[in-house]
């Protein structure tokens, strides 16, 4: 992924048909007053919150399992994953179903905002420190007209912690 920092034209939400491979589409969502973006190719669908079956021996941020048209998928509470405060479920709360590393998982977000198209040169590398967010989920920042979008590496959502948890769980047997 390109990490050029050159300043660029400000892209409005009106998508500009830029030349060839330079653009990418993002789904943006809100989480604790911040705006995040995920590559649209990773997003399968967006669904309403439903009943989640909790699962034992999983990290806090694994809220449990849901039935997505006869497939059982895990639900990650992104707030807890990022160490943010818990929030009551609102009318805007959504589950974003994403495909990561061959698996389908749902992530709980405060609200889904829009689909937008950006150019690669709008992406700036992440600053050395971002409050409340571990570096590893982060691929960059996207400058928009009057706001900043945090580009998320959704593949890392289940993360090393979880792989470690898997090992710990099997080792415990």
């Amino acid at each position: 992924m390109s990490t050029t920092t050159q300043t660029s034209d400000i892209l409005t939400q009106e998508v500009r048909q830029a030349e060839g491979n330079e653009t990418m589409q993002l789904v943006s969502f809100r989480l604790a007053q911040e705006e995040y973006g995920v590559e649209i190719t990773k997003v399968q669908e967006i669904i309403l919150m439903g009943e989640i079956t909790r699962v034992p021996q999983t990290p806090d941020y694994i809220k449990g399992l849901i039935n997505l048209r006869s497939t059982v998928i895990p639900i990650v509470d992104l707030r807890l994953r990022f160490g943010l405060a818990r929030e009551e479920i609102s009318d805007e709360t959504r589950i974003m179903v994403v495909n990561v590393a061959g698996k389908t998982i749902g992530i709980i977000v405060d609200a889904v905002s829009e689909v937008l198209r950006i150019r690669q040169d709008q992406i700036a590398p992440p600053p050395p420190t971002v409050a409340g967010l571990g570096q590893e989920y982060l691929t960059g920042l996207v400058r928009l007209e009057n706001r900043l979008l945090i580009l998320l590496d959704i593949d890392k959502i289940l993360g090393q912690e979880e792989s470690a948890a898997i090992e710990a769980a099997t080792a415990g047997l």
């Binding site: 694994i62 399992l65 497939t71 059982v72 698996k103 099997t170």
Partner: peptide, 9 residues
Amino acid sequence: MAENYRNIP
């Protein structure tokens, strides 16, 4: 469960 997540003891 391993299909989309992992097995749980």
